[in-house]
C-alpha cells in the first residue's frame, strides 16, 4: 500500500463541459493506471484544439467518497480523471 500514488481531485465547480464527476471532486484516490495522452474534452467541446493530457484511472474507496453512508467500505470506485484536475495528496485517513 505504501507504493501507491495518491491524488486529490480538485474541488472546483467551473462552468462548461467538464468530464470530472462532481461526486469525486475534493476526494482522494490512488493511481490505478495512467492512460493517454488524450485531448482535453473541455477544449474539444468548444471546437478548440484539445491539449493532449495524461488520463489517470484513479481508485477511490467507498468510505472516502461516501463516508459512513458507504455501502461496503472496502469496495471501490474507479474513474478516469484528466491530469489537470489532480493534485498530489497524502493517503486519506479512515473516516
Amino acid at each position: 500500500m505504501t507504493d501507491r500514488t495518491y491524488m486529490r481531485v480538485r474541488h472546483d465547480m467551473p462552468p462548461g463541459h467538464v468530464r470530472t464527476p462532481a461526486y469525486l471532486r475534493g476526494k482522494i484516490g490512488w493511481v490505478e493506471r495512467t492512460l493517454g495522452p488524450f485531448p482535453n474534452p473541455e477544449q474539444l467541446a468548444y471546437r478548440h484544439a484539445g491539449q493532449p493530457l495524461p488520463l489517470m484511472r484513479l481508485r477511490f474507496t467507498m468510505a472516502e467518497v461516501w463516508g459512513n453512508a458507504a455501502d461496503g467500505h472496502q469496495d471501490t470506485i474507479d474513474a478516469e480523471i484528466y491530469s489537470h484536475w489532480l493534485e498530489p495528496a497524502d493517503a486519506p485517513h479512515a473516516p
Binding site: 464527476p21 469496495d75 478516469e80
Partner: peptide
C-alpha cells in the same frame, strides 16, 4: 459474499 470486493467502474472519459 461480504468478503468479495465490489469494484465500480465509472466510464467518465475515453475508455
Amino acid at each position: 459474499p461480504e468478503n468479495t470486493t465490489v469494484r465500480v467502474h465509472d466510464s467518465t472519459a475515453d475508455m
